[in-house]
Structures are given as structure tokens and as C-alpha cells.
Amino acid sequence: MTLDSTCARTAGVVARRIAGETLLVPVTRRAQDMGLFTLNEVGTFVWERLDGTRPVGALVPEIAAAFEVDTQRAREDLLAFVSLLAETGCAGEVAP
């Protein structure tokens, strides 16, 4: 996974907003061993935008502006987060 990759949410993972937190709940066979994930505000922001229409890196300036962090930090955190989503099967690389 790189910032040039295009990434999309996996269909078998459902996001639920509960008590101010976003939870990712796998509901397919493929995801059955993934457990549950709790996303913070930034994670939720990214998750909602992983629609497979543009490279992941396109989110860097949006994150930097929305959460007032420098672009280098936004880039590193974003890459780590989408890599984790990909590893756990919550999201995957798609053809642009």
C-alpha cells in the first residue's frame, strides 16, 4: 500500500456510530477473525472517504486542514492507518 494506491472499504465491514465512536464490525465470512475496531475522529474521517475513487494520498491535505497537523505527519499517519485497514481486511486496494 502506498499513497498512490486507490483504496476502498470492504463490503463486508459495517461502520456503526455508537456513543460518539465509530466501530468497524466485520459481517462476512472473510472477515470473521478480524474482531472489532474502534476508530478515533481522524480514523472515521478517513474511513468515510475511502470510496475507491481517488488515490489515498489525495486525503493528505484534507486531513492536514481538518485536524490542523502538518502534511508530513498527516501523510505518515494516513499511510499507517490504511495499511492496517488493508492488513485486517477492512479495506483493500482497488483499480483506480
Binding site: 459495517v14 456503526r16 455508537i18 466501530l23 464490525v25 459481517v27 472489532l36
Partner: peptide, 14 residues
Amino acid sequence: YWATLRKSTVAVEI
């Protein structure tokens, strides 16, 4: 609670 959350979410989706 977490076990119920998972099971009920799966049940709702399916």
C-alpha cells in the same frame, strides 16, 4: 456487550 454488539450487527446486516 461486545459479543452482543457483533452478533446483533451481523444479524441486522444479514
